[in-house]
Each structure stands twice: as structure tokens, then as C-alpha cells.
């Protein structure tokens, strides 16, 4: 054990300087330090992150896109779509690539993001009603299939979370049908098929996971 004459204290450890006054001490070192030894490299509080780089690059790209869009003769404001794509990239990083939560959440967030992209593309490029008629119903059906696949694979580990997000995806399946009923979309086959599949899945979920979901709602919304 070391002794610091200046501070009049004994010092544990292997370091030869006093932790209080930084002066050299008398005595002998102990066989090991009292805390795990400091690693050579220490992480900075604000390291350069992938997200940080992405945001910087995306901002630059967006500025160029908006400048080109408005500087050149244009029929569409396509730079809005570029903005949506950049946001999609950001949300994908946050909610899918670097997200450490359940896979169900990742599938749902991708479904939701893709639906937003399709709707934006349809309106920005004024290209009929393909988003409501084909793209969104197909995405919802594929998403439900993915959910079911993952439930089979990860059921024991993350079952509850899949059911939770499956519920939300089923509700999203009603969106194309609502557009048909509202007269926004005139093609009815695929939206109605997606709606049917969603509602059948929803009924099965209510039948088999009703208590789970009721409990989820209670937990999530307790005041």
C-alpha cells in the first residue's frame, strides 16, 4: 500500500501518484488495481455516428434536389418525393437497421413507411390510383405473411410482440377498402382481397390472442 505524505492518507492500488494531489507516493504497489484497468481507447461522448453522416449527406442531397427541381423547367415537384425517400431511409435506419427491438415492429414500420411512399408517389407524379389499387393491398398481404412466418420462427421468444404489430397491420389492411368506399379508388378486387385477409387474420387474433391484446391495451394505456 502507498502512503501520501502531503495528503496524509493511505492509497490502495498500483498507480504511483496520489489520486488527490498527484504527487509521487511512498510505499509498495498492490498486486492488482482496485478497479478494472482503463482501456487504451475511450469512446467519446459524441462520436461520429452512421446516422449523423446519413443526416448530413441527406441534407446536402435534398438541397441539390430542391435547387435542381426549381431551377430547371419541371412538370412535377419531384423533390418532395426525394424528401420522402430520404426520410424513409432515416426511419429505416432508426426503426429497422439499428433498432434492437422486436422483429414485428420492424415489419410493421416498413409496411407503414412503404404505404406512405406509395401514396406520396401517386400524388406527386399524378399517376392514377395504383397505390390504393395494387401497391398498398399487396404490401399489407406480404407484411401479414411475413408476420405469420416470423411468428412461426420466433414464437416462443417474441410471440406477444408479433401479435401486437400484426393487429396494427390488419388495421392498415382496411385503408385500401376505405379508399374504395370513399370513391378515391375505383379498382376493387385487390383492395377487397387485402381487406378480407386482414379481417380474417384479425378475427383469428381476437379469438386466440384476445386476452393478450386486452392486457397489452391495459398495460399500454393505464393512467
Amino acid at each position: 500500500m502507498y502512503y501520501c505524505k502531503r495528503c496524509n492518507v493511505r492509497v490502495n492500488g498500483t498507480n504511483v501518484t496520489c489520486p488527490l494531489c498527484k504527487a509521487p507516493m511512498e510505499g509498495v504497489a498492490e498486486p492488482f488495481p482496485p478497479y478494472p484497468e482503463k482501456k487504451a481507447t475511450r469512446s467519446k461522448n459524441r462520436p461520429i455516428t452512421f446516422t449523423g453522416v446519413y443526416v448530413s449527406l441527406a441534407t446536402l442531397v435534398l438541397i441539390i434536389c430542391f435547387a435542381l427541381n426549381f431551377a430547371l423547367p419541371h412538370r412535377y415537384i419531384w423533390s418532395v418525393f426525394a424528401l420522402i425517400l430520404v426520410l424513409y431511409g432515416y426511419f429505416t435506419l432508426k426503426t429497422t437497421v439499428f433498432y434492437k427491438g422486436p422483429h414485428g415492429a420492424k415489419v410493421f414500420s416498413q409496411t407503414l413507411c412503404l404505404c406512405v411512399i406509395f401514396i406520396t408517389a401517386q400524388y406527386v407524379f399524378r399517376t392514377g390510383e395504383w397505390a390504393f389499387a395494387y401497391a398498398i393491398p399487396a404490401t399489407v398481404v406480404i407484411s401479414l405473411a411475413l408476420h405469420l412466418l416470423f411468428v412461426g420462427v420466433f414464437h416462443k421468444r417474441r410471440g406477444n410482440s408479433f401479435f401486437r404489430y400484426m393487429w396494427l397491420t390488419c388495421l392498415l389492411g382496411a385503408l385500401p377498402a376505405i379508399t374504395v368506399l370513399a370513391g378515391v379508388c375505383t379498382k376493387i378486387i385487390l383492395p377487397m382481397i387485402a381487406f378480407g385477409i386482414s379481417m380474417i387474420t384479425l378475427m383469428f387474433l381476437i379469438a386466440f390472442t384476445g386476452r393478450t391484446i386486452a392486457d397489452e391495451i391495459r398495460k399500454k394505456s393505464h393512467i
Binding site: N8, R10, N15
Partner: peptide
């Protein structure tokens, strides 16, 4: 009678 120890984080 005082005994001290540090993780010398400032070093």
C-alpha cells in the same frame, strides 16, 4: 485514519 483509491479517470 483514511485510505483512498481511485480509478484515475482524469489521467
Amino acid at each position: 485514519d483514511v485510505t483512498v483509491r481511485s480509478n484515475y479517470w482524469e489521467a
